[in-house]
């Protein structure tokens, strides 16, 4: 079975130049992503986990064609996107869609929900009855058709995230990339959105890339996970394997640091948590 992977990264690096601090020395360079190679199969649910500064957000921008790698190659469905100018990436915009963390700032407050959801259709010149499509999409994410003529601020956080998902689904993509989609939500709403993601990814047969700092959420959602630290992928593996027998010390300390209700009730204290992380970071 040598099917083309949905997403493939080969030796991808992304450097950022810091502002010059001295006239004589060259400006310092920050390696946000360092030699990352990975492959996401079609229909797979792939997680990217890392703490702040791990480079996961930069990696996500690279995969979405919103930024270009300094070196290396990025293939989406077998086609290279790394070296393409933005206007040659129309096909990518159709195949791959993005859902953001903050459901407030990711929706234009001055646009009605129907215009927000139809935006990918309009900007990509996809024809057909946009109104009917918007109604269909609202139904898919569990919102009333009546929502179409309202503004984002009239919805709660979880509902806004549903609108975000509807917008992403509008051009009928194959790949859904989600950047911390539940981090800003309350627990009761988080469960609703996680269930929706589950339903949609299964129902529409999507490939999912799910970026999060929260290992327990990733564990719930994903089949396979890449753990990032300081721009590098330190470990990739099946989610359950990664949790039960982490192959890298950093993964182990990440797993150990997650507060867990059951473990806490069984007597795990804050001190035990901290001990798992090792010496103060």
């Amino acid at each position: 079975m040598t099917e083309t992977p949905a997403i493939e990264l080969r030796g991808v690096c992304r450097d950022f130049r810091r502002p010059r601090t001295s006239l004589r020395e060259a400006p310092p360079v920050v390696r946000a992503v360092q030699d990352v190679s990975l492959s996401v199969g079609r229909g797979e649910r792939f997680g990217v986990v890392g703490e702040s500064g791990s480079g996961k957000s930069t990696l996500l921008r690279l995969i979405c064609g919103l930024d270009r790698p300094t070196s290396g190659e990025i293939l989406v469905e077998g086609r290279s996107i790394g070296d393409q100018p933005a206007r040659r990436l129309r096909w990518l915009r159709r195949r791959l869609q993005l859902v953001f963390q903050d459901p407030m700032s990711s929706l234009d407050p001055r646009m009605r929900v129907r215009d927000i959801i139809a935006e990918p259709l309009v900007s990509q010149g996809i024809g057909g009855d946009h109104g009917a499509r918007v109604t269909e999409l609202l139904g898919q994410v569990g919102l009333d058709p009546e929502a179409a003529r309202r503004y984002p601020h009239q919805f709660s956080g979880g509902q806004r995230q549903r609108i975000s998902v509807a917008r992403a689904l509008a051009p009928d993509p194959d790949i859904l990339v989600m950047d911390e989609p539940v981090s800003a939500l309350d627990v009761s709403v988080r469960a609703q959105v996680l269930n929706l993601v589950d339903e949609i990814v299964d129902g529409l047969d999507l490939t999912l890339v799910f970026v999060s700092h929260d290992l327990s959420v990733v564990r719930h959602v994903c089949d396979r996970v890449a753990v990032m630290r300081a721009g590098e992928v330190v470990e990739t593996g099946e989610t359950e394997r990664l949790f039960s027998e982490p192959g890298h010390d950093y993964t182990a300390s990440l797993v150990a640091a997650i507060p867990d209700l059951h473990a806490a009730l069984a007597g795990r204290s804050a001190q035990d948590l901290a001990r798992g992380v090792g010496p103060a970071s």
Binding site: C64, L98, D102, S106, M111, E119, S123
Partner: peptide, 26 residues
């Protein structure tokens, strides 16, 4: 800097489209 502009870019909006649809109204 808002995410809805990034969202518009990833939806395939051109810079002019972003200026007209998102920047001007806001």
């Amino acid at each position: 800097r808002t995410e809805y502009v990034v969202a518009a870019r990833s939806a395939g909006r051109s810079p002019l489209g972003i200026a007209v649809r998102h920047v001007v109204p806001n």
